[in-house]
Design a protein around this nucleic acid. Sequence first.
DNA 1: CTGAAAGCGCTTACAG
DNA 2: CTGAAAGCGCTTACAG
Lengths: 326, 326
Amino acid sequence: MPVTIADVAREAGVSKTTVSRVINTKGEVDVGTATRVREVIASLGYVPSSGAVGLARGSSRTVGMLTPPLTWPWMGAVLQGVVDTVEAAGYGLLLFTCNRGAESVEHFTSQVSARAFDGLLVIEPENTLGTITAMHRKGLPVVLIDDRGHHPEFPSVATTNREGAASAARHLLAAGRSRPLIITGRRHFGCVADRLKGFLEVLPTELIAEGDFTELSGRLAVERQLATGRHFDSVFAHNDLSAAGALRALRSAGRSVPDDIAVVGFDDIPMAEHTEPPLTTVRQPMREMGERAAGMLLAHLGGEAAPDEPVVLPTELIVRRSAPMP
Amino acid sequence: MPVTIADVAREAGVSKTTVSRVINTKGEVDVGTATRVREVIASLGYVPSSGAVGLARGSSRTVGMLTPPLTWPWMGAVLQGVVDTVEAAGYGLLLFTCNRGAESVEHFTSQVSARAFDGLLVIEPENTLGTITAMHRKGLPVVLIDDRGHHPEFPSVATTNREGAASAARHLLAAGRSRPLIITGRRHFGCVADRLKGFLEVLPTELIAEGDFTELSGRLAVERQLATGRHFDSVFAHNDLSAAGALRALRSAGRSVPDDIAVVGFDDIPMAEHTEPPLTTVRQPMREMGERAAGMLLAHLGGEAAPDEPVVLPTELIVRRSAPMP
DNA sequence: CTGAAAGCGCTTACAG
DNA sequence: CTGAAAGCGCTTACAG
C-alpha cells in the first residue's frame, strides 16, 4: 500500500539503484536525474522503510534505553539529554522500562525488541545487570548511566558522589555546623557508600539514618531523631526528595531552617527550588550525563574504542536558603 | 555475525519454516521437534531480527511518540503510562521530541524513522499539527494526548478542563472567596480557554493575567497585581508551576496563604505536595491519559474502529493547605 | 507434521 | 553516470 522505492523508480524512469543513490547521496548521479528523482519522491511522499533499510544495511540506526520508573524526578532531564543527542545523530530511541521486575527484563531480552537497536543505554539496572552483561558479551554495545557501584565491564558515566558529599560537608562546616544527621539511601547502592564516605571524611558523625530516597523516609528519619532528644544542627540527605521530607518534619516540629537546623540535599531536582525554604543541594548534571552517555554509545557505534575508565562528571553545590552561605 | 534463523534451522536439522513456526507457535509442530528447536534457540541465544520480522510481516510492532520537552513536570507520568501499556502489548516505543522546532519535525517526518512504527502518539504538537495530519491522511494511525483545543481529525484523549476549573471556583466560593485573580496559560491553548470559561461561569472576575505556565509568570502576575493595590482574596493558576510562583510572590510580600489569599493550581505535579503550604490543585490524570491513548492506538492497530469522540478523563480536586476545606 | 520457494523493501558490489 | 542481480533475515502461501 505505502509507496516503495520501486514506485519511485518506475515513476522517475530510473532503476531502484539510482533512487537509492540519490537518497543516500552516494556515488555520482547526474544532476538532472537527481532532481527528477527528488521531485518524484516529494510528490509521492515516499519515505524509506526503516525495517528494510536496517535489514539491508545490517544496522537499525536506533539505540535502546532501559530505564527505572520514568516518574523519578530526574529522569526527564536524563532522557532529554539522551534524546537530543541521539536525534541529532539521526538515530532513533527505543524506550524500555523494567517496572515489572525480572519478568519484564526477560521479556525485554527475548522480545523481538532485541536487535531492534544497535546499542543500549542503561540506567541503574538493579537486578538486571546479569542480563545486560550477557547481552554485552554477545556483542551489544552498552553504556551505563549513573552507575551505583556495580563496576560493570562496559563503559559508564557517573558523577563525583564522594567529592559532592564532601563539598556539602565543607559547606556545613564553614557555616559552623558540627552535629549533622545523615539520611542515606539504601546502603547497597554504590553512590550511597561514596556519599557517606565523602561526607564523613570531612565532617564525622555517628548520627546516620538509613533511608530509601523517598520523601517519607526523610520525614521519618528526622522525626525519630527528634524523638531521641539527641542534638543535631544540620541534615545531609542523600537526595532531594528525602531532604524535602526532612524539611517538612522540621517545620512540623517547630524547628527553624536554617536557623536551628541547616539542610542540604543531593540531586537538584526541579522541586529543590520550590521547597520552603529553597533547598541547598549538590547538583548532579543529569542532562549532561544523558548527553555524554548517548555520545559515548554513538561514538562506539561509529567505530571508536570505548573508554575503559568511567566518565565522571562534576557535581556542583547549589546554595539556597536551607543552608545559606556563612 | 549474530545467529540467524538459518543457524538455528541447520543446528536443529529442520527447515527455517519450522523454526519460524515454533517461534510464532503457528500451525501444528511435532512436540519433539518443537522442543529440540527451542533447545537450540536457547543454547545459541537466538533472537529474531526485528527489522527482518517487520519487513516480512509488514508491521514493526512499534509505536512512535512525539513529545514536548521531557523536562515538563508531568511528562514522566504520561510517558510511564504509555510505556507500560505499549510494553504489556509486546510493542516497542520509539521516542521523538520536537525540541528544535519545525526543522526537527521535518527531520522526524522524512527520517528513516517514518514507517519505523505502526502508529503514533502525539502530545501537544504546537506547530506540528499540519505535518501530523498529513501523515494521518496517508494512513498512519495517530492518537493525540492532551488536546489543547485544535480539534484534530484523529482520536484524542483529554481531561475535563472546564469542569475542573469550575470545581476550583466552587471550592473557592464555598470558602467565602469572591475576588479571585486568574493566572492563565497562553491564551491560544484550547485548554486555557476551557479553564477560563469553566471558572468564570462559577466565579466571575475581571482580574485575569495572561501567563505562560512558568513559575516566573506566576510570580510576576502576583507582583503586578499587588502593585496595583487592587484587592484579591484568592488565586487560580492554570498550572501548578505558576501557582508555585504565585505562592512565592505572596510569601515575599508578607501575605499569608491561605489566610489572606487562597491559592489553587492545576495539574497536581509531584511538586504540588511540597510547596509551602502544600498546593490545592485540580489533578489531571496524566498517567491514565497515557495509558488510555496508548490503549486506543493499540486497539486501532488491532483492527478496532477509532472512537470518533475524544475520550475525556475526569479531573479531581485535590485539597491541600493552600486552599483548605471551608 | 514439514519444507522449498517466493517475497517483504532496501543496499551494494559488480559490470558496463 | 546507470542498472541487473544478489542478498539482508524473516514469514507465508503452496505442496506434499
